[in-house]
């Protein structure tokens, strides 16, 4: 039912469109700049005196919180606004193929941005001898988390033709997913909700899963968490587009 050829064609178009517009350059420059600032100033990379990239990865959830919605807001909202959604969905391509093609392009694009932080990796290897497998899992975790944010963003973008609305709602939903492991969210539920639900909410947290991976332990549960989260939001996006194609 899924035609990988169709997904591939759309994927290429989407990925090229990032580089045909200033989006790619602005995003990459800001991402590299901010991740540098966060690592060296907020994260005290040098003062830590440790040959690892903890200081670098720690701030990724917060960086993604406002950068990813900026990337994802246009995914479907722009198609609705310009009317190209009518063109796209009357081509011999199914909605789920379109959702996947667009998502994968955005995800690979964030992967490219992430890979461009390689000077950080070179620096830490030059200064000391870090455990590169931990750094690798840090990158993997960061990319998976970016995928999670993007999937949320795809779904929200599918609901509206207004990109600003898509940005704000995606940021808020993403914030909930980051914070759901923290007391400020859990306290709200723990008073009245059953422990099972509280645990469930807590287990939805991006932070706990992300932190687990960045420690260098690639646990199947964390992988499954992010991948099923992505699958869930993309499925929701598909349903939304199927039922609400026009406007």
């Amino acid at each position: 039912m899924l035609d990988t050829y169709n997904i591939g064609v759309l994927f290429k178009r989407e990925l090229n469109s990032y580089f045909a517009t200033p989006i790619a350059y602005v995003f990459i420059v800001i991402f590299l700049f901010l991740s540098g600032i966060f690592t060296f100033y907020l994260g005290n990379f040098f003062a830590n005196g440790q040959a690892d990239l903890r200081a670098f990865f720690t701030y990724h959830p917060w960086l993604y919180l406002f950068l990813i919605p900026a990337l994802s807001m246009r995914l479907w909202a722009e198609e609705r606004k310009t009317g190209t959604i009518e063109l796209l969905l009357t081509l011999p391509i199914s909605v789920i193929e379109a959702v996947l093609g667009k998502f994968l392009a955005a995800w690979v694009f964030t992967g490219i941005a992430l890979l461009l932080t390689f000077p950080m990796w070179i620096t830490v290897n030059y200064l000391g001898s870090p455990d590169n497998s931990v750094i690798f899992s840090g990158y993997l975790g960061s990319w998976l988390m970016a995928g999670g944010f993007l999937a949320i963003g795809s779904c929200v973008s599918a609901m509206t033709k207004n990109q600003v609305v898509a940005f704000v709602i995606t940021a808020v939903v993403s914030l909930l997913f980051i914070l759901s492991g923290l007391p400020m969210v859990l306290d709200f539920f723990s008073g009245w909700a059953p422990q099972l639900l509280v645990n469930a909410i807590s287990s939805f947290s991006f932070l706990s899963h992300f932190n687990a991976i960045t420690k260098g332990v690639i646990d199947l549960r964390d992988l499954v968490y992010f991948l099923s989260l992505i699958a869930f939001w993309l499925f929701a996006a598909t349903l939304i587009i199927e039922t609400k194609k026009a406007d």
Binding site: V9, R13, N16, S17, T82, G83, T84, E86, L91, I93
Partner: peptide
């Protein structure tokens, strides 16, 4: 073959890129 109202097309593509994309999607 469908020409929707207002002839929507991806604004950041050139006609050549656009037709290339359509041709690929059409197999």
């Amino acid at each position: 073959g469908y020409l929707p109202e207002g002839a929507p097309a991806y604004p950041d593509m050139t006609p050549l890129e656009f037709l290339d994309f359509i041709a690929q999607i059409r197999g």
